[in-house]
């Protein structure tokens, strides 16, 4: 095949079977919706336990994080996420899984150089740029409200 690299790459990209995008979207929409509904249900449950709206919302997040980490620990989360994709990745469950899975993986290298140094390998960029975006937003908000 006497073609240049650019043409070869185009040929390879064109013949590669694509991910089933509609199927993935539907799965993500439904599973993400279910997780958020569970979150809403949890918020109601915590309010019934006497928490105010803000605290109950926070506890709903904490409960979802706990559930995601527990499912990661017992090796179930990745099997669910294989189907649900962005449905489990985008809510707080995906973030919890990214941190917990890194921690489990690096445990064999010790608590300092392993877990300590590598726990944020995947979540790190989200934290860094999330906080950075927050700072920028804060500065803009400050400028608008004060000046």
């Amino acid at each position: 095949m006497n073609i240049d690299n650019k043409t070869y790459k185009k040929y390879a990209d064109a013949r590669a079977k694509k991910s089933p995008i509609w199927k993935n979207c539907i799965w993500a929409f439904c599973s993400g919706g279910i997780i958020c509904s569970i979150g809403h249900f949890l918020r109601g449950m915590w309010m019934r336990f006497g928490l105010n709206g803000d605290n109950a919302g926070m506890m709903a997040s904490v409960t979802l994080i706990f559930a995601a980490i527990l499912l990661t620990g017992i090796g179930v989360f990745d099997n669910i996420a294989k189907h649900t994709g962005a449905g489990t990745l985008v809510p707080i469950t995906g973030f919890a899984n990214a941190i917990a899975s890194s921690a489990i993986d690096t445990r064999s290298e010790g608590y300092v150089l392993g877990v300590g140094a590598k726990i944020f390998t995947i979540a790190g960029p989200v934290i860094l740029y999330g906080i950075s975006a927050g700072v920028v937003y804060g500065l803009i908000y400050f400028a608008i409200t004060v000046i």
């Binding site: 991910s19 990745d78 996420a81 899984n97 899975s101 489990i104």
Partner: peptide, 17 residues
């Protein structure tokens, strides 16, 4: 998997290739 891609329990999707 650990060295080249993601942690084992990371929940991601793979393309058909």
């Amino acid at each position: 998997e650990r060295q080249f891609r993601y942690p084992l329990e990371y929940g991601g999707q793979r393309p058909p290739t």
